[in-house]
Write a protein that binds this DNA or RNA. Structure first.
Length: 646
RNA sequence: GGGCCCGUAGCUCAGCCAGGAUAGAGCGCCGGCCUCCUAAGCCGGUGGUCGGGGGUUCAAAUCCCCCCGGGCCCGCCA
């Protein structure tokens, strides 16, 4: 459950979990979760509510503790801990000297703290970000990317195989709208970007927003909806200033001259789905241009993908038609509003409710009732969800994955639930049960929602640029005379650290109201605070020079802050392992902040390089190294790059 | 109308799923600390009817029910 690690903390925890679970008859998962640091340090380093289980299993608490003690003894681990039963809790306290002794030995052999390895490695697919290729990535996508990338890094570090994928939605209405805009303007995305002096994704985003609002205006005018019309016109007025006048005008006049603008958009979608020219090259060209911009931003953001999947490839390769065939043969196939559909509520009633495992994995809302899921439009084109069914099956098939994690906004909950039920309807039970929607709440602008359609959003590029500018000023002030190139590189890593940390630290179900000021506050509770703490620790080590572990005195770390810091730095492998298992990068973030706090407090009171006693000095330096490396490894897992100096 | 998520200090949040030991951080505000390992730091002070009500329990911020406030979703959009 805990997995394997060389350090005494991981080994003790693994044994406690095994032993307690054994003697109390409680599942290891539960024991692992309840084995936590007590509310106050004087109780010890780890605590477990034995009495809760003792009464349930009829085992005397004392007996249980003795049994666990015996197990630790057998594994030669008892020397590391004191164990006491206090008011029904088993309190475990690590013995500083003995732990330090063992840690010095490990460090001397080149050991570094790293997440405990899973005993059963699995294959994961993490699909994340997957933004529509019609506008630049905004902070909502950045939250998605931060979460997805951190998950992937955590799972890999835990020893799993992880395949990270980006799904390119190039068959939706949005791309078709952008395509219409480019067609009317007669420009090419990359050329326009050059003229505007912006990245290609920003240029496409502008054309998309102009075209979308022009279409909305026409529609509102036709229907006499004054409010909609006002909104569209206001958006257009804002957009007008942000790009070449000629392009803006040709889109506007082009759209107004179209007899049936909606039909124009539909035609592009239809022809693209069939793979016909010139739509094929037009749409692909736009999407490629945007993806080029995405890649640039994501690379700067420290996010990488193994595979990029084109929605259109699934359609063109016959994958989607195959799924449609299977749907038609499914007992849950139905016709709804004269269109082929799947009877989703019936799937819920017949395939989920009677099946305990399915019920547990697929949580149905009470009184779940939705209309059947339509698979094909009356013009013969497929719908997003239909293609997503094909994609889901595809992800499992090409990777051989045990689990697929889709990092998608919470607003897609119902759609994701329908998707899993559709998989069940087609007989893909394993896939349906092992695919999860890793949902997160949106990032809001103060007072309103971000919208790529209205062209109202804060792009990740803008925020990173602003953060970089701020940190560059600070870096230069603190390092007068440092080379410009170095300062820039450090500033950009601080900027990324700040934004990524700000986006993974809060629980993912908390809606974030975007306060750029707060995000760029580099004080405590921030990515740069961790980087700063790392740099401080690193600076000590540089000044100290080589550590001689044979000289280091374990007694120096036996008590007080040093002992506490030693134990807390050693928690990293287990905390990271748990964060990986729970898919909870925010737990790792909280731990790193606490470790940094503790280190900084100790730093103010104690000295390393001025320590007169040589044995104590080497011991303290070893402690600093352990803290630095736990911090550094943890930061890396969250995409916050450790900096030797800043 | 139905469903889901959120509601904890002036502000942003952790703790809730897996009930227990004096509810934790940061920001803000007030006051201190740089001839000494990076002050993006540290120390002290300030601040809480855990949205409200009921229930279960020896024990509830945590579980159950009702209500209130905010958000999201219920499309031949994605």
């Amino acid at each position: 459950m805990v997995g394997s690690g060389k350090d005494p903390y991981t080994r003790v925890v693994a044994t406690l979990v095994e032993g307690l679970s054994d003697v109390l008859g409680a599942p290891e998962v539960q024991v692992f979760r309840l084995l936590q640091p007590p509310p106050r340090r004087e109780y010890g380093d780890l605590s477990f509510p034995v009495m809760r289980f003792a009464s349930r299993s009829g085992v005397d608490p004392e007996t249980a503790v003795e049994s666990v003690r015996g197990m630790l003894w057998e594994r030669n681990l008892l020397r590391f801990v004191d164990m006491r039963l206090e008011s029904g809790f088993l309190n475990v306290k690590f013995k500083g000297e003995d732990v330090a002794d063992e840690v010095f030995r490990l460090l001397a052999s080149g050991w570094k703290p790293s997440p405990a390895r899973a005993s059963k490695p699995r294959t994961f697919v993490v699909e994340h970000t997957s933004a529509n290729p019609v506008h630049p990535l905004h902070l909502g996508h950045a939250r998605n990317a931060s979460l997805g990338d951190s998950l992937a890094r955590l799972l890999r570090a835990r020893g799993h195989m992880v395949n990270v994928r980006f799904y390119i939605n190039d068959m939706g209405r949005q791309v078709a709208v952008a395509a219409l805009g480019f067609k009317l303007a007669g420009v090419e995305p990359r050329k326009l970007a050059e003229d505007m002096g912006v990245k290609p994704d920003a240029a496409v985003g502008w054309v998309y927003a102009v075209t979308h609002n022009a279409l909305e205006a026409v529609k509102a005018r036709a229907s006499g909806d004054a409010r909609e019309l006002d909104e569209a016109m206001a958006a257009l007025a804002r957009l007008k200033e942000r790009g070449p006048r000629a392009v803006f005008e040709s889109i506007l006049s082009g759209v107004s001259k179209l007899g049936d603008p909606e039909e124009e958009v539909n035609k592009i979608m239809r022809r693209y789905e069939e793979g016909l020219e010139p739509e094929k090259s037009l749409v692909r060209g736009i999407a490629e241009a945007v993806l080029e911009g995405f890649r640039e931003t994501l690379t700067a953001f420290g996010v990488e993908f193994d595979d990029w999947d084109w929605e259109s490839d699934l359609a063109w390769s016959g994958e989607v038609s195959r799924i449609l065939e299977e749907a038609r043969r499914s007992p849950y196939f139905t016709v709804y509003k004269e269109a082929p559909a799947l009877d989703i509520p019936r799937v819920a009633r017949e395939l989920v409710e009677p099946d305990p495992e399915a019920r547990e994995r697929i949580r149905l809302p009470r009184g779940f009732e939705v209309p059947p899921l339509i698979l094909v439009r009356s013009d013969g084109t497929t719908l997003y969800t239909t293609r997503d069914i094909a994609y889901s099956v595809y992800k499992f098939r090409v990777t051989g994955a045990d689990r697929v994690i889709n990092v998608i906004g919470a607003d897609q909950r119902l759609a994701q639930l329908q998707l899993r039920l559709a998989l069940l309807a087609l007989g893909y039970r394993r896939e349906a049960l092992n695919m999860e929607h890793y949902d997160y709440e949106i990032v809001r602008l103060p007072g309103r929602r971000m919208s790529g359609r209205r062209g109202e959003f804060v792009s990740l590029d803008e925020v990173l640029a602003e953060a970089e500018e701020r940190s560059l000023r600070e870096v230069k002030a603190r390092n007068p005379g440092a080379p410009e190139e170095w300062a820039r590189s450090v500033a950009s890593k601080i900027a990324v650290g700040a934004v990524r940390f700000a986006l993974v630290q809060p629980g993912r179900l908390k809606p974030i109201t975007l306060d750029v000021e707060k995000m760029l506050d580099f004080r405590e509770n921030s990515g740069p605070y961790l980087q700063y703490t790392y740099a401080r620790a690193n600076s000590i080590l540089e000044k100290h020079g080589e550590i001689d572990y044979l000289k280091a005195s374990p007694q120096a770390l036996d008590e007080g802050m040093r002992r506490d810091l030693l134990v807390d730095a050693l928690r990293f492998p287990v905390i990271a392992a748990k964060a990986a298992d729970d898919l909870a990068p925010e737990d790792l973030a909280a731990y790193l902040l606490k470790l940094a706090d503790e280190f900084n407090k100790w730093y103010e009171r104690d000295t390393v390089i001025h320590e007169p006693d040589e044995a104590a000095r080497h011991a303290k330096a070893a402690l600093v190294k352990l803290v630095r490396d736990s911090l550094g490894e943890g930061m890396r897992l969250l995409g916050v790059e450790p900096l030797p100096r800043m």
